[in-house]
Amino acid sequence: MSTDETSPQAKVATTEELFEQAVRQHSRRLLAVARAIVGNRASPEDVVQQAFMNLYQHRHRYDWRQPGGLVRRTVVNEALRMLRQPRMASLIDDTLEAAQVHSPGRQVMESETILQVRRAIDRLPDNFRAALVLCEYEKMSYAQIAESLDASIPQVKTWIHRGRRQLGEMLRAYVNQD
């Protein structure tokens, strides 16, 4: 049975149990989203942990039976909030190297291309990056993204469109440079 489903016969899970389920179920993708948004300017683990702690503090206010949207929105907001803090300087870019270690089977060339794309993504404006990752990785609709980012749908369309165009230009420059 999916953790998001409930049946009358099933033992009613406590909020704490549902919270734990949400952590186990969603943290992998949330960490990827946080990594995509904060890039090398903050710790994505801190973003996800802080987001979950914020939710846990007021856990009784939320419906934890289907927490996907809630936790995603909280992580995105926390990531953008961290990026707005002036003290956030670039961290050492070890996550890019870590990506290579995490994927030992990949070809060197492929890893190099991935690195370049990730670097290009890191250089995008925060909102472009957030909209792109929610659209392409989380497969969210423009309306859902607009709600998550507290923006209008045309604004989200523009961010995604411009983000892709800027990425394409950056990568073309990289290919031409080589």
Binding site: R28, R29, L31, A32, R35, A36, A99, H102, S103, E110, T113, I114, V117, R118, I121, L132, V133, E136, Y137, R164, L167, G168, L171
Partner: peptide, 14 residues
């Protein structure tokens, strides 16, 4: 390009 980015997004997973 979308396929390439998809690989990148997946590479971000821990």
């Amino acid at each position: 390009e979308a396929g390439m980015r998809q690989v990148v997004w997946t590479s971000l997973e821990p």
